[in-house]
Amino acid sequence: MRLLNDIHHLTFVTSDMERLIAFYGRVFGARATVDLEEEGLRHAFIEVGPHTVLHPFQVPDVEPPGPLPMFRRGRLDHFALSAASEEAFWELRRRVVAEGVGDGAVTDMGSLLNFGFTDPDGGEHEIVWAKPGVPVEAGLKHAEWSTAEIP
């Protein structure tokens, strides 16, 4: 029996909610489905996929940590968004590069393709496309990763 379907939401701090909502809308076609201010806090639901929501908070006098090395970023190191298709993966890569929030380098990890982006608050995250029919165990070892050919 399956007990869970997906992650419902990921919560983090932003210094500028308008900027963050606009960024995810522009680059990922996301939309804010909730945007509330209560008890001195502003928070929103930014729907980035049919089952995935980002839930940022803008808290007075609290700033996001900014860019930090991987595994030094705190409780949530990063998240990876799943591209809907290979075509969507390459379109998202194009948008990230055009926005200037990633260098567009794509890593072929065997069972998936991956590239990174940096959000307006310095959070470093990923876009992933899982190759259909390729077992997840293929390419899990870092030494097996390669640079993917850019179409």
Rank of each mutant, 00 (worst) to 15 (best):
T147P: 13
D103H: 07
P151D: 08
E144K: 04
H55V: 07
D108R: 02
P151M: 10
P69A: 06
H55N: 14
N114G: 00
W145I: 11
D119P: 01
F28V: 03
V134A: 10
S82V: 04
Q58F: 02
V53R: 00
P64C: 07
R31E: 05
P56R: 06
H142R: 14
M1K: 08
G133K: 05
R26M: 02
A105G: 07
E126A: 01
H43G: 09
A32D: 08
F45M: 11
K141V: 11
P64E: 01
F28A: 00
G110F: 10
G110D: 12
E91I: 03
P60S: 12
E144V: 08
G74R: 02
R31T: 11
T107P: 03
E144F: 09
D6F: 13
H9N: 13
T52N: 03
F23E: 00
R95C: 08
Q58A: 07
A88T: 01
D119V: 00
M70T: 08
R31N: 13
G66A: 14
L3P: 07
G102A: 07
M70W: 15
H51K: 10
G122S: 12
V34L: 11
L54W: 02
D119L: 03
G74T: 01
R42F: 12
D35E: 15
G122V: 06
D6Y: 12
M1I: 13
S15V: 08
P56D: 03
R26Q: 10
G100A: 10
S146A: 14
S111F: 12
L3H: 14
G66H: 15
P69C: 07
H125K: 08
V134R: 08
E91Q: 15
L36W: 10
H9D: 04
H78A: 02
V134G: 06
M1A: 15
A30V: 06
R93F: 06
H55R: 04
F45D: 02
A143P: 01
T107D: 05
E124Q: 04
P60R: 12
R95M: 15
I46V: 15
V27N: 00
P151R: 15
L41Y: 10
A143C: 11
L81K: 00
P151V: 09
S146T: 11
H8R: 05
K141D: 12
P132A: 05
R26I: 01
I127R: 02
R93C: 01
P120A: 13
V96D: 01
L112I: 08
A143T: 14
V34T: 13
F57Q: 01
A98Q: 13
H142T: 08
S85F: 08
I127C: 04
P67G: 14
D119A: 03
V101D: 07
H142P: 08
H8T: 13
D108E: 11
L20A: 13
H51I: 09
A88D: 04
A32V: 11
L54Y: 00
L36I: 15
P56I: 05
W90F: 10
Y24M: 00
L10V: 05
R75W: 15
E124W: 04
T147S: 08
H8Q: 09
E63Q: 07
A22F: 10
A44N: 09
I150V: 13
E38S: 15
R26F: 08
G40N: 06
L112V: 14
M109W: 03
G133C: 15
P69Y: 05
S146H: 15
F28K: 00
A138E: 12
R2F: 06
